[in-house]
């Protein structure tokens, strides 16, 4: 069984946010909800100033705190390591959201589903086909586009990235691209002191 993970190559990320748009489109996300973000940071002192882009998404932690605190059993980990949320079981209590050190949970507010992307109360065809996968009021997150992964495809953010800054694959396969990158370029985990053992790594 594979153990899926992702590597972000910070040297390649140009902050175009195509991944964000690809994700929103693939997952039919309502207004204001993002499963992935590309954060930016400026550092240094003029004239030696630099800007770095840091993509973020759910880290699909081995020891996922969101799964541990979920009182309804809605959050669970698949055998391939993808941390999922069952929309039928989620009660929207938000305990997963305050337990995630990476702030990667999103509230699917009921109003967003009623108002629609344009705030007119009329849903577009795009919204009508996408929203039934969510329960209004639930708290959810990135699932590595599990439907695409099951079909043998990469997540939408990975295929949308024009610079190959996002690399997805099996971390248990030593010959997979992410495994090689982590090994050769020293992949770093976000907030390692939180002991969540993320399956997302950063290389720079």
């Amino acid at each position: 069984m594979a153990r899926y993970g992702m590597v972000f190559d910070l040297k390649r990320c140009i902050g175009c946010n195509a991944c964000v748009i690809g994700c929103k489109q693939e997952n039919s996300l309502p207004d204001g909800v993002f499963f992935t973000r590309t954060l930016s940071e400026e550092y240094g002192v003029y004239p030696a100033v630099n800007r770095v882009y840091i993509p973020t998404l759910c880290n699909h932690c081995e020891d996922a705190p969101c799964e541990k605190v979920c009182p309804s059993g809605a959050t669970y980990t698949r055998p391939d390591g993808i941390v999922m949320v069952d929309p039928e079981k989620c009660i929207g209590c938000g305990s997963c959201a305050v337990a995630c050190p990476y702030d990667q949970r999103s509230e699917m507010k009921a109003e967003a589903f009623k108002d629609g992307l344009f705030g007119t109360g009329e849903l577009t065809d795009f919204e009508k086909q996408g929203y039934p996968r969510y329960t209004p009021g639930m708290v959810t997150k990135c699932d590595f586009c599990s439907g695409r992964v099951d079909a043998g495809l990469d997540p939408a953010c990975v295929v949308t990235c024009p610079t190959d800054a996002r690399i997805f694959g099996d971390l248990d396969d030593p010959n997979s691209k992410p495994s090689k990158l982590i090994r050769e370029r020293g992949g770093k985990s976000p907030l390692p002191e939180k002991n969540t053992r993320p399956k997302v790594y950063y290389i720079d």
Binding site: G73, I91, C93
Partner: peptide, 25 residues
């Protein structure tokens, strides 16, 4: 009034083995 899906709130009782919310309920 806080719950996103109040009609399913009863489910919060299901995981006392790991969740303090369940134990509290």
């Amino acid at each position: 009034s806080h719950m996103g899906v109040p009609t399913k709130s009863w489910r919060a009782i299901l995981r006392p083995d790991r969740s303090w919310i369940s134990r509290g309920l």
